[in-house]
Design a protein around this nucleic acid. Structure first.
Lengths: 226, 226
DNA sequence: CCGCAGCCAGTTGGATGCAATATATTGGTT
DNA sequence: AACCAATATATTGCATCCAACTGGCTGCGG
């Protein structure tokens, strides 16, 4: 039972699998910021050679999850409060812009897609799995922005999100934050469905801005005791 | 990313050298959009193995210069007019924002750095080397934005620039465009030195916007005869 | 003449082994 | 004890080799 476990429809490359594996470890908090990633260790852990591990790390570096220095290996990137401000300011420019572009050309199907994403998020809250919630939370954002048909900008926003999101999981009162996010999401979707561009843009901006403040204050707190 | 060839005393990795090599080929137009990049060919050409070539291609994919599809290899990414609009709209949001942040905290040294970058660009115009001009043109932009101390956003802007810049070299009247860019640069620097934030932001926006229009109209023209 | 199964060449994906570099350790000197 | 040099070890970087996949070609059958 070495290979061929699920030969049907599971046609992924090893590099991609390793990338997903490491990414989930980082995003899930198993590898904290500053953690040294040993190629050999990961390779042995997954029963593969170091080559796909190296290539996976290169992809993760592009996503901002790790930093690679020559002959010194990969380290899980650590976010300073300044970095967080940097990332979120960029998102605050791009996301409202994209949602406006999206709403200018969205179809009824796009709206129902967003509604479904919102519902998936709602339904997942009682289950309380932080990884799942984070994923669905972001899926809602993507659903809002996708109709803009701006793949490049969307990829940038995705990268910005990936670089900061995992720090939200360190929150003191995650359940409270999730329900707050849910209410904000509902309001945003309400305006979105009503095709009220100005209101949607404004609410989305505030939503992102709130998340920014939360992360930044957290990071500042943890930095002050270092 | 754009380190020049300094074969002496240069102790960088083979992967980085290969990445620079391929990037310059793409940016210089030697590999046009859609061109298939054969790992073996590059490897033989540079006398290295395919491993550093593959790793270089992964980095270039992150920069948006190539697209890699599983088991099909790397292709030089081709820009549609829509893609160009996408990329430039994002730059139009980020660059004015960054220049404002930069001016809010820049020192006199930062101003003189920008002045030097502008002068380097001016001095290079008579030599007429398009690659050199493009590099110095962008160096001026970077000099303007660097004082913002926003490394993440700046990296994003850099990527956006890399993805579209090479199409500027296809212009019909490149010399004319370069002198136009020079005058715009001078005006921008004038406002920058005077610490007139509103004016600098406005001029920079127009500068980027003009470049966008030029590229987009070019691309649309070449698309219409396809 | 067209369509499809199955082989064939070319290319990429991955494993193993060796070389180069950074970090840790040891031993000597002040 | 503190500091520095030389060595030892661990880790990354790269080359070579093998396996897996893609796309085209051939030939049989409809």
């Amino acid at each position: 039972m070495s290979t061929q476990a699920k030969p049907l429809l599971q046609r992924q490359t090893v590099t991609a699998m390793v990338a997903d594996y490491i990414a989930s470890k980082i995003i899930g908090g198993d590898y904290p910021g500053g953690h040294q990633i040993r190629q050999e260790a990961i390779a042995a852990e997954l029963g593969v050679s170091r080559i796909p591990v190296r290539e996976a790390l290169l992809q993760l570096e592009a996503d901002g999850l790790v930093v690679i220095r020559t002959h010194r290996g990969a380290v899980v990137s650590d976010l300073s409060a300044d970095d967080a401000i940097d990332l979120f300011d960029a998102r605050l420019l791009l996301e409202p812009f994209l949602v406006r572009k999206a709403m200018a050309r969205m179809s009824d199907e796009d709206i129902s897609n967003a509604g479904r994403a919102l519902k998936d998020y709602e339904d997942a809250i009682p289950r309380g799995d932080p990884k799942e919630l984070s994923r669905l939370n972001w899926a809602f954002h993507i659903a809002l922005l996708s109709p803009a048909m701006r793949p490049r900008s969307l990829a940038v926003v995705q990268t910005l999100y990936n670089s900061a999101d995992r720090y939200l999981r360190l929150q003191i009162e995650p359940i409270k934050a999730q329900t707050k996010a849910l209410h904000e999401h509902r309001d945003i979707f309400e305006a979105y469905r009503a095709r009220d561009i100005v209101q949607t843009s404004k609410l989305l901006k505030k939503h992102v801005s709130d998340a920014a403040e939360e992360i930044v204050s957290q990071l500042k707190a943890s930095e002050s005791l270092a």
